[in-house]
Amino acid sequence: MKSPLIWGVNARPTVWLRWVLLALPFVLLIAVYLYASDIRLTDNPADKLLPSFSQMADAVKTMAFTEDKRTGSYLLWSDTYASLKRILIGTLLAALVGLWLGLNNGLFPGMDATGNPFITFISMIPPLAILPILFISFGVDELAKVMLIFLGVFPLISRDMRLAVKQIPHEQITKAATLGISQLQLAYRIILPQIMPRLIETVRLSLGSAWLFLIAAEAIAADQGLGYRIFLVRRYLAMDIILPYVLWITFLGFMMDWFLRWALSYFYPWYNKGGKND
């Protein structure tokens, strides 16, 4: 029986073909860009909209490997450090708080009765709409930005954790009681370890919104950060800086995602294997 290489549900692309298919959209994108950039630059060598690769490389050299005269720092790295600090603290806080709330709401009906409606309500508030409130109440320093990320991300994590707890078969809760396990032990030794992998998955999915909130906050009020820089140089139409910055952010996001995926399979090998009898 011969399976088709590409088309249809029975397709079985070979290993090298997989690599080709993977590279295809990237190669296309780069080719189209180079072509368009080349046309514009021959037309007008001072054009800033689609810089050539060598212009971008020069820009990266200035940003990453040349000391900034005004601040004495290497801008790309200080921006990265500032942004990563904000996004990591914000997301970590959201993960911890979301985990704790979701665990308790999912397991204890009494807590759920107040917790769930309230968190559902909070999750409906568009975080960006309250950004001015955050700046007013927490100042324009780090706290407001971290708070925006936190508030933007934790309701979803909390609600998802609650659902994860609810998905644990009720048999397990009865079973735990027949083994003489107390309710606190049930929460922290039986339920918690089982929803940890789901937390990792949820955080993975939430990172996209976390970046959105980070860049939005930095665009409005900051003195360093990746988002701040992009919106700052936008005034000079410095696409040669903006494009590498965007690629860098994408790369950072990709690495975080990759790390979480690795952690999931390394620490929770039993996850998604069910614990079911089949």
């Binding site: 078969p169 048999e171 397990q172 079973k175 039986i190 370890p193 089982q194 929770y268 039993w270 294997k273 069910g274 614990g275 079911k276 009898n277």
Partner: peptide, 10 residues
Amino acid sequence: IFQRYSLFPH
């Protein structure tokens, strides 16, 4: 002992 889910998968 139930038909399934009697064990803790973790």
